[in-house]
Structures are given as C-alpha cells and as structure tokens.
Design a protein around this nucleic acid. Structure first.
Lengths: 342, 342
DNA sequence: TGTCCCTAGCGAAATTCTTTCGAAAGTCAG
DNA sequence: CTGACTTTCGAAAGAATTTCGCTAGGGACA
C-alpha cells in the first residue's frame, strides 16, 4: 500500500499503518502514551511518506543553530578552535549554542534529554571537542539522527562518527626527527590521556621516527597526563628521577611544555642548553613563553571551520567523502631546541 | 463584554470582536489579507484575553536562552569571562548563544534584524563584552525591551544600561601605589582604548595615587592601545624614545604587559631590575610569563557569573538594586616588580 | 485459582485551529 | 455608468489535537 500522491496528512499515515489519527498525532508530538512498537511503526511510515507537521512548516527556521560542547574552554587550544568555529558560523549565518561539559559529562539520563532537546529545537547538530563523551553518549545523538562531528576525540569514537583532527602522527614524527637531527637520543614524550587518539597518534609518530633511526624506545620516557600545565610540571619531575635523564622532551601540548619550562626554571635547568623542548599546538602560549617554544602547530582555526562546515554538510544530508578529516601540522622552530649536550 | 473564565479560544476572541474565527486565525498567523483596522481590533482583544496559540504553548521554552556577544574571544581575558558565564548558565539551566562581533560591529540594518531575532526567538537577553557596541546599537535592543548587560564597555554606555565590571579605579590605584612604595617616580601607563571606561578608571586610579604622593603626572608617559600584545611592544618602544625613560610601567592588561616583556627582552632590558612592570587581569598569562607578572587580578570568572545572573534577574522583571556592579580587584605581587634603580 | 484493582495503550468524539474559495464591497479607468 | 480588478472577509471543509473512556494484560491478595 502506498500514498496516492498528495501531501501526506495524519489521517493518511493512520490508514497506512492501521492505527487511529490521534495515535499518529501523539507520535508526532512525542507523547508518552504510545507503545514503543506502535511508535516505531508510525515513525517509519511518517519517514517514508515525508510527513511534515504544519507547526514544523510554520516554524521553519530562518537561521540554523548548531551546538558546540567543550570539555573546558580555558585554554588557548580551545579558544583557537572556538574562534574558528565562530568565524565559519558567522560566514554561513549560523548560530552557535555553546556549553562546557566538564571532564565528567552529565549522567546518562541527562544526556538523553539533551540529545532530545537538540532534536526538539531543530538544531542542525553538535560539535564535540576533546570531550569525555564516550561512544554510548554519542549513541544518544546517533539514535536520533543528530549529526555529530568530533574534534580530537578523547575516547576512541565509534567508527561511523565523523571526526576532524590534525596530522598528529606526522606532527609527532616531525617533532622527534627535529630532535634527532639535533643529536638527541634520549627523548621523552609527555602526552595527553592514554586513550586520546590524538595523543596516541603523536606518540606513534615519535616511535616511528626513533625506530627509523635505530634509536631504542625507553618506555620509562613516555608519560601520560591531561594536556595541562601541571602535567608538564609533574612530568619533568618524574623524568628527572630517572637514572639516565632525557636530553630532550616532546610535549603533547604547549601547556604541558609551559609546565616543563616552569619546573625547569625552578630547578635551574637551562632550556635549551641542557634540555631541548618541543611543544604541540602552536598557540600564542608557544610564542610568548621564554624561551619561545619550538612547537608543532595545528591549524586550530581551520579545524574549527572545517568541523562546522562538515557538520552542516552532514545536516543537509550530503554524502561525506570521508569520516575523518586531517589538516596538516607544521613544525615551527623557535628557541627551545638546541643541539644535544656532548 | 468579557470572557466568562476559561482559556481563551479563537472562537471566543472572534465573538468578542465581532469577526469570524478564520479572521482571528489569520491575524494570529500574520496573514496579509486582513485590514489594518480589523487587525488592530483583534490584536487588542487577543492581548486583553491573554490568548496563546497552541503552537505557542507547545513551543514554550523549557530552557531559557541568552545571547553573548564578544568583540573577540582569543584572549585569556575573554576565556575566563566566558568560562564564568557558561558555569553560571549550566548551574541555572540556561543555554548560551555565542557570537563574536569583531571590532567593527555589523551595520545598523543588520543590528536591527539581530535585535528583532532576539525577540522572535524569545531569548532572555544579551550580554555584551568589551564590544564596540555603541549607544545607538544598544538602543536597538532597548527599543524592543531586550535586557542587556554590558561587561567592561568600550564606549560609554547610556546611563540606564546595566553593566558589570571590576573596581578598576581601586585596582589602578593599588598598582600605582605598589610601584610608588618601591620607590618609582617615573611610572608610565599603557592602557586600552581611550574611550573604554575600564581603562579610564584604571588611569584615574593611577593619577590619584601619583597625586596623593605629590608625584607629577607626565602626559607623555600615558599611552593608549587596544589591550593587545602588540600594543605593549609599541608602547615600550615609544616610551624608550623619550628623553627621560620611565623606571616602571603599569600595563592596562596582561597582554600589554607580555608585549612589554617581549620588547624588553629584545632590547636586553632586565625586568624587574631595570624596569618594573605591573599587569592587569591576573590571567594565566601573568602566571606563566617570565618573569611572572605582578598583576591586578580581576575576578573574571565571577564577573561572568554575575553578568548572567543579573541579566536573568532583569529578564524576570525584578527590580535591580543598581545599574552598575563592581567586583573587587586584588593586587598579586609576583616577580616583575622591584625597587627602583638608584 | 479466582477476584480485584491498576496501568498502559489505544481510539471515538469533541474541540480547536487552518485553509480554501467564493462573495461582497470598494476602486479605478474608460 | 460599466466592467475589470483588488481588498477584505467568512462559510465550509479539512486537519490536528485533546479529552475521556474503554479494554486488555498484569500483579497483589485472599
């Protein structure tokens, strides 16, 4: 059975599915008193018939709205991404609803409500940034067909989630190679969360560089943190406790590198004479620190722009070329790296 | 004639005004084919009866939404404020629509549309942060009865606009007094835009401190910029060109101070031995710079929270105690200030 | 096992709102 | 004055929603 042309009405859908008109109305309006099975059947028919409620037709938004969820925004990394997202949003006439999740995201039930709200308010989708959203959290959005784009996921996302990032592996490799070229052999890595894909990729780029030069990887030289200044402080402290100290450190973020610098200054360790240091991100932090940080710059602004563009493309139902977009990183050499001490 | 209790329906309004139900429906939905006179009559009756369309009832927002407009967000100052706004928003279950205006705000016509949208979308109001919104821009919102709260206005706002800030005058006084206590007499001020109230207040706090100690104010030692790092660089360059150089600088923001530090390092001028430096804001920038900046800390996080709270109070129609809220600043002494060279 | 009561799920009927379409009244050129 | 057009409105039909009561399937309990 199928519809005989015409714009679909509730009554038509009702006939099609063998329920009453009121029941269809209830499904459309999200009432509770409809069995899950019946709801599913009706929703399928609605979908197939392309039904649009008159309220929906009326409300048709003049300006699209997207949601953006950050773990935290008090970092140059977050500011730069946000700046890119907002710039693109302004260019495309889209509004941005911003929220911070904190490292512990809302409980499941809350998350469900939030995802539902995104649907109710007819928002185009959500951009999730280095947030502790797990796969199951993302599923709440996925179930409701809400487009999601993740920037630098902290937890490995389901394979079908669209993500935007940088060439972290290549960046890690470039950083390590730069240090190797300067004659360093004991090179430590102070990274972000072990589960974070971006940090993982940087680590493996670093591994790759070491191995291709025949330098053995010492697991004691690899430490994980949370990309914060304090992690750099603690990281350096830990590394100095080793029998054989590293002569160079590759930090997984500029913030970590700043922490290393702070602790090094405290201990009267001269950078770069006694210790070379490479950061990651290429934010203003790298430029303003003393000494200025050699850092692997990520195109954070462009990543933000790309994320928004991708999200809207997804929302429009366009087929995406790839579920993963990586923008190029670039090693910027400043003053914090020097030849290894003899 | 009046309504006999009950929730008002279109039919009731129609009887009341002596037109047909369809005509009332058309007025409610803003159709064109209704005479202006009839429309006015019906609207009046709708207003009086307190009619709400079912669509409207449905749409009645569960969560309030506020708009936040920043000049730019790529600064620690902006991040900290935003963080506070978002924290309070999360606590109160309010959503935040964020946008950046850029230093040149949208043209008048666009601004009008934007203000209208705030009304259409039934948003609670707007928080404007150090933005180049002028009085006439704010008027667009004011005309529509949209609550506005301004944080650190760049242009003097109309007197009836609610604003949140810090005790800038006291902060400027404290900074200058600290330097005077260290024996400095030639103290420069590198501030923000001349029209910015917050910068003005800091400057006058500085004047006050100097004058109460009987130190003459040298107008050549006062320079204005835009709170950016570059303004610090240029500011110091300009000051060094003077016959008699200052021995201390009071910077209107930490970013300016960082610029001063950068230029000083470039020129091999030692801070604080040869030049003392006080910043303003007390952001992470102050803590991480070398030497760590003595700075007047603003409670940016709390200012953000207060702004949102105030806005919502205004939106609820509560009477505000004051059109101006100032939170206390605090001088934090670190390493960038020392006794004046002999 | 039977009885009672409760609840979830559904639809008939009534109510409310919207749209279509044609009629009445006004306007204007010729 | 006439005919063509426009504006404004409402009758009637159509669409969507709400109310309210029915029914069936489950416990709880004697």
């Amino acid at each position: 059975m199928t519809l005989t042309g015409r714009k679909p009405t509730l009554a038509a859908i009702a006939r099609l599915t063998g329920v009453s008109t009121p029941t269809v109305s209830k499904v459309v309006n999200g009432r509770e008193d409809v069995a899950a099975e019946t709801r599913a059947k009706v929703l399928a028919a609605l979908e197939e018939a392309g039904y649009e409620s008159p309220a929906h037709r009326r409300t048709t938004r003049r300006t699209a709205v997207v949601e953006v969820a950050f773990d935290a925004i008090n970092s140059n990394y977050a500011s730069a991404l946000l700046d890119g997202i907002l710039a693109q949003a302004a260019a495309m006439g889209v509004e941005v609803v911003l929220s911070v999740t904190g490292s512990v995201p809302a409980a499941g039930i809350d998350l469900e409500r939030r995802a539902q709200r995104t649907v109710d308010e007819e928002r185009s989708g959500i951009i999730v940034v280095t947030s502790a959203f797990t796969g199951s959290h993302l599923a709440a959005f996925h179930r409701r067909r809400v487009p999601v784009v993740v920037i630098d996921p902290l937890n490995p996302p389901p394979s079908d989630v669209v993500s935007v990032g940088a060439t972290n592996w290549a960046g890690g490799k470039a950083a390590a190679e730069h240090l190797l070229d300067l004659g360093h052999r004991r090179i430590a890595y102070l990274g972000g969360p072990e589960s974070a894909e971006c940090s993982q990729a940087r680590l493996h780029g670093y591994f790759s560089a070491l191995m291709s030069r025949g330098v053995e990887v010492d697991p004691r030289l690899v430490r994980h943190g949370r990309f914060r200044v304090e992690d750099g402080v603690e990281g350096l402290t830990g590394l100095l406790a080793l029998d054989e100290r590293p002569t160079a450190i590759f930090a997984g973020s500029d913030a970590i590198a700043v922490g290393v610098l702070r602790e090094a200054r405290q201990r009267r360790i001269h950078v770069p004479e006694e210790l070379s240091l490479v950061g990651f991100d290429g934010t203003a932090l790298a430029e303003d620190s003393v000494p200025a940080l050699t850092s692997v710059a990520q195109p954070l602004h462009d990543m933000g722009r790309t994320a928004l563009r991708t999200l809207l493309r997804q929302a429009r139902g366009e087929q995406l070329d790839s579920h993963r977009v990586e923008l190029a990183t670039q090693l910027v050499v400043r003053e914090s790296t020097a030849p290894a001490p003899a």
